Computed example of a mutant assay.
Amino acid sequence: MPGGFQVPDQDGAGTVEAVGEGVDPGRVGQRVWLWFAARERPWGTAAEYTVVPARQAVPLPDGASFDLGASIGIPAMTAWHCLFADGPVDGPVLVSGGAGAVGNAAIRLAKAAGLTVVSTVSSDEKAAAARDAGADAVVDYRAGSVDDTARAVRAAAPDGVSRVVEVAPASNAELNLQVGAPHLVVAAYADDGEPVPVPGRRSMLGNVAWKFVLVYTIGDRALDAAVAGVSEAVAAGTLVVPPLHRFSLDDVAAAHDAVQQGAVGKVVIDV
């Protein structure tokens, strides 16, 4: 909290130890995954205990590990919202950065919905992660020009992609226009630091919708829908534990440094 005490981190998993007034006491002992633990409150998940509103402690099926529970939260909710907030997707999906936590979840969620998925990556290691998540085609955008990347994406999705889950909206604006089908939706959940060059006329001709997503502010109805969608995916086995980088509670600073340095997979803190 600004100027005050703050335990960091939003996501986590564990067992309910106690409940407050008005909450079903039968929830004590329940296995749960958490979201937004540190949102507008000082008690994040980098601690032995945290306190959250009951709706933010979501039942975790017995077959799902705490590693998985701690790995979903914001990344999986963001991926679900980028994909399905407007309803079912009716064509191929392009996932930019398919090795990241959001991108990996987006690939798995889209494949579970029966969609063709193309992913762009920047290294062989990241390509392997995207393929492992189920991407039908993986394109290394460093291998050529934007036009080359567009041709490779079009080879996998000849009629164009219907939706883009975008991590770098400024860098990829031209690519998205080249590979988009009519009525393309670009859902960007990150900012790569530059103004996004959105050509009005070309976007109008294709009825392209550019959306910018911050899961913290999408509203309660959208959050509830994302939680429900992620919970369904967990129960179905769609989401699995990504590559993990493990740190002890005493090494919280190092864990945050790993995130800032672009660790491939998910950084978790063992308590």
Rank of each mutant, 00 (worst) to 15 (best):
A170C: 04
G193K: 11
P2V: 13
T149H: 08
T120S: 12
R246I: 04
A129N: 01
A263Q: 03
A37R: 00
A129S: 01
E40K: 02
A173E: 09
G91I: 02
A46R: 11
A133I: 00
R163T: 03
P42M: 12
D224C: 06
P8W: 11
S248K: 12
P169D: 12
K266T: 00
H245D: 10
F5V: 08
D148P: 11
A137D: 02
A228T: 12
V240G: 05
A105Q: 04
T50C: 14
V185I: 14
A76M: 00
I74N: 09
A157Y: 09
R246N: 05
A222C: 03
V28I: 15
P92M: 03
V179C: 03
P195W: 15
L68I: 00
F66E: 08
S65F: 11
F84T: 03
V146S: 04
R246W: 07
A110V: 11
V234M: 02
P2Y: 12
V268Q: 01
A152N: 12
S122Y: 12
G229P: 03
M77S: 07
T45L: 00
R151F: 07
D11T: 08
T217M: 03
R151W: 11
A18L: 15
G262H: 06
R201K: 03
N104R: 10
A54I: 12
E17N: 08
D67R: 07
V153L: 06
V213A: 08
L34Y: 05
A236L: 07
A228L: 09
L244A: 08
A190L: 15
D136R: 01
V139L: 09
I269L: 08
E194F: 15
A106D: 14
D251M: 05
G69N: 01
P2T: 07
L244C: 11
D67F: 10
A222F: 04
A79R: 01
A209M: 04
N104P: 02
V268E: 05
R41P: 01
A76S: 10
V271Y: 07
N176K: 03
P197V: 13
A170H: 04
V208R: 07
Y49R: 12
A110L: 09
D220S: 01
R55H: 14
I107W: 02
L184D: 05
A79G: 04
S248I: 07
P53G: 12
P75R: 01
S122H: 15
N104Q: 13
A173K: 08
M1R: 07
V23P: 14
I269F: 07
S65V: 11
E166F: 06
Q10D: 13
A225C: 03
V179K: 02
I218W: 12
A110F: 13
V196T: 14
N176T: 05
L83Q: 01
G219L: 08
R151D: 15
V93C: 06
L177I: 09
A190I: 14
V208I: 14
L94G: 05
A46D: 13
D224Q: 13
A70E: 06
S71T: 04
L68M: 01
G91H: 04
V264E: 06
D24G: 10
A38T: 01
A101C: 10
Q10F: 14
G200W: 15
T238V: 15
R131T: 10
A130K: 03
D9R: 11
F84Y: 13
A236N: 08
V117G: 10
V23S: 15
L184M: 08
L249E: 10
A156Q: 06
G219C: 10
V93R: 01
V268D: 05
A225L: 06
L214I: 08
